[in-house]
Write a protein that binds this DNA or RNA. Structure first.
Length: 741
DNA sequence: TCTCTCACTTC
DNA sequence: TGAAGTGAGAG
C-alpha cells in the first residue's frame, strides 16, 4: 500500500506512512482533526519471537551477545556497566496492551508560534547546534493512562525549495539542496505511561538544530532496502541536521509502545502544526524575528532594549556618536556651503570636534555627553526622529509592515487555512487549544514488507509535493549490508563512550535475525527513551562519536560527512564494552527513562544530562512597537520556556528519578515559570539606523583635505577617539559624507 | 553566507 | 561558580 503525504488530510481521516522514511511535509492545508484515527493499514506486528530481522555477523555477534545475554540473564545490576543499570531481556517484554485511546495534542505557546509564523519564520541553526525558538512544546490528552507511549519529534523538509531573504521577504531561490540525514528525536522520558505524559507539558526544548553534517549527536541506523519496516536509514539524536535557507516542518509523533525496541513496528500518530514551520538560517535575516526572540527568550535578555546589556550600551554609544557626526555635518554644511567639495565637507563633519551647531533646534538633544545616563539616552532614542536622523535613516522600521506580508503569503501556499487564525484567536488558544490548533494528524504504521521506497532523484529526500515519489526513489545513502563494526577497543580506552547496551533478549529478536544492520559511526546521542534502543542496539551501532563526548577514539575521518559515515560505518564501527557504552550515553546528556525502559532507576552517570537545566523559568514579553503593527491583539505574556501546569505526582517521580530527564518535562518548567510581564518599553530600532548609515560609506571620503586639515586637525583627533569607542562606527562618518554632500 | 568570538544572560 | 544559551559583529 502506498500513501502519499500530498494526499489531503481530511478531518476524520488519517494517513498512514512510514515515519522514518524520507519525505516532505504535505503541501496541503492542515485541516485535519486531532486524535487518533484508524490507520489505513494496521501496524506491522512482529511474530512472537521476532522474525523480521537483522543479524550480526557471527564472529562479531557472539561476543556481543554473550555479554548482553549474560547481563540479561543475571537480572541484577550489571556492575560492569558502572551505574546501576538493569537490563531487561526482551523476552520479558509484555505485549502491548490492547487499550483504547484517542490522543489529542495541543501546541503550547501557540501565541508565540503565531507571532513567529507571521514574522518570517526564521530559526537559527549553528554548527554546534541551536535550540529551537520558539520551543516546541505540546500537551497531550486522550491517552490511555496505563498504556506506555513513546513520544518523538522530527523535522522534515517543508518543500523542495531553497529560499533567500530578499527585499525584506523570503523568496524561493531555487531548488533545495540535498537533504541532510534525517533524525528522530525521542523524548527523553519515553517510554512513559499515558498518565505521565498527560500530566505535564511535553517539551522538546533540548532538541538542537545544526547545519553540521558531521554532527555527532546522534547515531544512524541503516537498514537494508528490503527490510520490511525500516527502509532507508534513519538516525536518532539530540541534534537535527538541517540545510540553511530551507523550509522545514517539525512533526510530533505519539507511539503506543512499551519499549523502544518496538518502535519500528508500532503505529505512529503524527501531528503537524503549520505555525511551527520555519526556515533555517545561520544568521537572522529578518530583525522582526530577532526582536521576537530577544523579547521572549531569557537567554537573549541582554539584548533587550530595556536591559542593561551590551546591546543597550552599544546602541547608546552609537547614537551619541552619530549625533556628534550629525552636528558636525550640519555645521560643516553651513560653513562650507560656499566652496568646499562634498568629500571634504564630509570629512570635516566627521572630524570636527566642535559640537556647537548653528541653527539646529535639536542640537542639544543630539549631543549628549558620554556621561549621559542610560535613561537619558533611552529617552532621546524614543524621540528618534527628532533627536537624530534615525527615522529617515532607518529602513528597517519603515519596512516592517511590508515584511509581514511576505511571510503569510508564503505560508498560505502550504496552509491556506492558517492565516485567519493567528491573531484574533491567540487568546482563545489556551481555552480551546485542541480545536483551534487543528494540527494535521497522521496515523501511520510501519510499511509493509516489500513496499518499494524510492527517493527523489533530485535530492536525497523526496520532493515536497510528492511524497510518493520521494519514497519511491532509492535512497541516496545506500547502505551496504552489514553489520556492526567494532572498534571498540580503542574507544574503550579513550574515555567515556555513549552507553549502549544490548538488550539481552534482543539477540533472539528481530533485529538480529537475518538482516544486516548498518550503522553510522559517530553519531550518537539519544534521548532517554532512546537509550533503551541504544541499549538494545548499541553494539550494533557502528561507533560512538567522540567529539562531543570527549571520546577521542573515533576518527573524524570516518565521520567527515554523513555519506562518509555511512560508507565507512562498517569499517569504523566499534563495539564497545557495555559499560563504556553506557558511559558515553550518559556523557552525551542522554536521559534514561525510569518508566519501563531498560534502566529502571536513575542513571547516575548522566553528567551532561544533569547539567542540562530546564528552560528559563519565566519570560516576559516586551513588545517592540514595530511588533505591534498589526496588533489588534492585546498585550500577551509569553513564557516560551515555562508553562505553568499542575504538577502531578507522576511528574515528581520523573524529577526524583531522573533530574535530567525531568528537566525536559514541561511540568517542571512550569513550576518555575512565573509569567511576569516586563514593563512595556519603547524599543528603538537602532540597529537599522546603523545599518543604513553604514550602507553608503565611501572610504575615499576619508582623505583629508590639506586645506581643512590644518583647521580641523584637533577635531579630527577627537573624533577618532570617539570612533574608537564606538565599534564598527568608523565608516559611518563617511557615509554621512557621501550621503549628504 | 557562514563561522567564530564576545559579552551577556539564565540557572 | 560555571555550564550553557543568546544575538551582535568581525572576518
Amino acid at each position: 500500500m502506498s500513501l502519499s503525504m500530498r494526499d489531503p488530510v481530511i478531518p476524520g481521516t488519517s494517513m498512514a506512512y512510514h515515519p522514518f522514511l524520507p519525505h516532505r511535509a504535505p503541501d496541503f492545508a492542515m485541516s485535519a482533526v486531532l486524535g487518533h484515527q484508524p490507520p489505513f493499514f494496521p501496524a506491522l506486528t512482529l511474530p512472537p519471537n521476532g522474525a523480521a530481522a537483522l543479524s550480526l555477523p557471527g564472529a562479531l555477534a557472539k561476543p556481543i551477545m554473550d555479554q548482553l545475554v549474560g547481563a540479561a540473564e543475571t537480572g541484577i545490576p550489571f556492575s560492569s556497566l558502572g551505574p546501576q543499570a538493569h537490563l531487561r531481556p526482551l523476552k520479558t517484554m509484555e505485549p502491548e496492551e490492547d487499550v483504547e485511546d484517542d490522543p489529542k495534542v495541543h501546541l503550547e505557546a501557540k501565541e508565540l508560534w503565531d507571532q513567529f509564523h507571521k514574522r518570517g519564520t526564521e530559526m537559527v541553526i549553528t554548527k554546534s547546534g541551536r535550540r529551537m525558538f520558539p520551543p516546541f512544546k505540546v500537551r497531550c490528552s486522550g491517552l490511555d493512562k496505563k498504556a506506555k507511549y513513546i513520544l518523538l519529534m522530527d523535522i522534515i523538509a517543508a518543500d523542495d525549495c531553497r529560499y533567500k531573504f530578499h527585499n525584506s521577504r523570503w523568496m524561493v531561490a531555487g531548488k533545495a539542496d540535498p537533504e541532510m540525514p534525517k533524525r528522530m528525536y525521542i523524548h527523553p522520558d519515553s517510554p512513559a505511561t499515558g498518565e505521565q505524559w498527560m500530566s505535564k507539558v511535553v517539551t522538546f526544548h533540548k532538541l538542537k538544530l545544526t547545519n553540521n553534517i558531521s554532527d555527532k549527536h546522534g547515531f544512524t541506523l541503516a537498514f537494508p532496502s528490503d527490510h520490511a519496516t525500516w527502509q532507508g536509514n534513519y538516525s536518532f539524536g539530540t541534534q537535527t541536521i538541517l540545510n540553511s535557507m530551507h523550509k522545514y516542518q517539525p512533526r510530533f509523533h505519539i507511539v503506543r509502545a512499551n519499549d523502544i525496541l518496538k518502535l519500528p513496528y508500532s503505529t505512529f500518530r503524527t501531528y503537524l502544526f503549520p505555525e511551527t514551520e520555519f526556515i533555517a538560517v545561520t544568521a537572522y535575516q529578518n530583525d522582526k524575528i530577532t526582536q521576537l526572540k530577544i523579547d521572549n527568550n531569557p537567554f537573549a535578555k541582554g539584548f533587550r532594549d530595556t536591559g542593561n546589556g551590551r546591546r543597550e550600551k552599544r546602541k547608546q554609544l552609537t547614537l551619541q556618536s552619530m549625533r556628534v557626526f550629525d552636528e558636525r555635518h550640519k555645521k560643516e554644511t553651513s560653513d562650507e556651503s560656499s566652496s568646499e567639495q562634498a568629500a571634504f565637507n564630509c570629512f570635516a563633519q566627521a572630524s570636527s570636534p566642535a559640537v556647537s551647531i548653528v541653527g539646529t533646534s535639536n542640537l542639544k538633544d543630539l549631543c549628549p555627553s558620554e556621561a549621559e545616563s542610560d535613561a537619558e539616552a533611552e529617552s532621546k532614542e524614543e524621540h528618534g526622529p527628532e533627536a537624530c536622523d534615525a527615522a529617515k535613516i532607518s529602513t528597517t522600521t519603515a519596512e516592517e509592515p511590508g515584511r509581514d506580508k511576505g511571510s503569510p503569503a508564503t505560508r498560505a501556499q502550504l496552509f491556506p487555512a492558517e492565516p485567519s487564525r493567528a491573531r484574533d484567536t491567540a487568546r482563545l488558544d489556551k481555552a480551546s487549544p485542541d480545536s483551534r490548533h487543528s494540527p494535521a494528524t497522521i496515523s501511520s504504521s510501519t510499511r509493509v514488507p516489500g513496499a518499494d521506497e524510492r527517493r527523489s532523484p533530485g535530492r536525497e529526500g523526496p520532493v515536497a509535493t510528492k511524497v510518493d515519489e520521494a519514497r519511491a526513489i532509492p535512497a541516496k545513502d545506500a547502505f551496504a549490508p552489514l553489520s556492526v563494526q567494532t572498534d571498540a577497543t580503542a574507544h574503550l580506552a579513550q574515555g567515556p563512550l555513549p552507553g549502549l547496551g544490548f538488550a539481552p533478549g534482543l539477540a533472539g529478536q528481530q533485529f538480529f535475525n537475518g538482516h544486516p544492520l548498518f550503522l553510522h559511526p559517530g553519531q550518537f546521542a539519544m534521548g532517554g527513551a532512546f537509550s533503551s534502543m541504544a541499549a538494545g542496539m548499541g553494539p550494533l551501532l557502528a561507533t560512538v562519536s567522540g567529539a562531543s563526548t570527549g571520546v577521542s577514539g573515533l576518527e573524524s575521518t570516518a565521520m567527515a560527512s554523513a555519506a562518509a559515515a555511512q560508507g565507512l560505518s562498517g569499517a569504523s564501527a566499534a563495539t564497545l564494552p557495555f559499560h563504556l557504552q553506557q558511559h558515553v550515553l550518559a556523557s552525551q546528556g542522554l536521559a534514561m527513562s525510569p518508566f519501563g525502559s531498560l534502566f529502571p532507576y536513575p542513571y547516575t552517570y548522566m553528567a551532561a544530562a544533569a547539567a542540562a537545566s530546564t528552560a528559563a523559568a519565566s519570560s516576559s514579553v516586551h513588545r517592540h512597537p514595530f511588533l505591534n503593527l498589526n496588533s489588534m491583539r492585546p498585550r500577551l505574556r509569553y513564557s516560551p520556556y515555562s508553562i505553568p501546569v499542575p504538577v502531578p505526582d507522576s511528574s515528581s517521580l520523573l524529577t526524583t528519578a531522573l533530574p535530567s530527564m525531568a528537566s525536559a518535562a514541561g511540568p517542571l518548567d512550569g513550576k518555575a515559570a512565573a509569567l511576569a510581564a516586563s514593563p512595556a518599553s519603547v524599543a528603538v530600532d537602532s540597529g537599522s539606523e546603523l545599518n543604513s548609515r553604514s550602507s553608503t560609506l565611501s572610504s575615499g571620503s576619508v582623505s583629508l583635505s590639506p586645506k581643512l586639515c590644518s583647521e580641523k586637525e584637533a577635531a579630527t583627533s577627537e573624533l577618532q577617539s570617539i570612533q574608537r569607542l564606538v565599534s564598527g562606527l568608523e565608516a559611518k562618518p563617511d557615509r554621512s559624507c557621501s550621503g549628504s554632500p
